[in-house]
Amino acid sequence: MAAPVSPSAARPASEMIGFDGVSVVFDTPKGQVVALDDVSFSIPEGEFASVIGPSGCGKTTIFNILGGFLQGNSGEIRLEGKPLQQSATDVGLVFQEDAAFPWRSALDNVAFPLELKGVGKEERHARAREFLQMVGLSGFEDKYPAELSGGMRQRVSLARTLVTQPKVLLMDEPFAALDEQTRLLIGDKITTIHNEMKQTTMLITHNITEAVQLSDRVLVMTYRPGRIKKVVEIDLPWPRTSEILGSEKFGQYVAAIWDDLRVEASRGLEAQGA
């Protein structure tokens, strides 16, 4: 076996994504909801970070801010050191919802962003084919989303975002609706792709195992107000083989994060049950 290499050591520590005292408050008929409260964190270039927390804690709000769909009430957001609004950094988004266009074949779905940029048919199909292969969907080029499983559709969406080769990749619970086996397999793919493309990645999830398996660092959130409770650096070797996933250290990370999350999750459960 190859000697384990810590990715964080091999990567430059320059910041790619930075949040500084970001707060988001929603006015609702029932009063104000503090979705994010003074959230600060920093993700170095090339790193794979996960954001984990119970549902309703503000994960999608972070995603929406970075995606440009939402503005914070206060605080600063930086991409490559520049304020988000002035940043020219390419950010690729993978949505929580099933977002593959049902009227396009898998190939034409993946080619979509290239088509928008005016890339010729031959070239965009060649590149789309390449990225479909990367997510393990070779042979499904001509299939339409209705003919694919949920996991395959989500991989089509992933390939469609990757084909633009964004410097930053944001994914909002892309695999939440999938069964455990499919998710583990896609997890392996994600790691391979990340090793190949080295894009800074932020994966939003509520699955602890997934977060520990895929990440260099895990940001644990609190429920209402949404805050960063803890940042856990996952010091496990790559690739995260089944041997590593079964190791004691892996289990300790999962248990420690669950300890932090348990309180938040039960608060979330009570709040939503009430």
Binding site: G67, W103, P113, L116
Partner: peptide, 29 residues
Amino acid sequence: VNPVFLRVGAAFKATRSQVITKIYLPAIR
């Protein structure tokens, strides 16, 4: 039209006419 399709268009910086011809039109065919 499913709003997530429009968000996909926005994420890829589609122009208004691209949103109409490549998202709305096929979506409401």
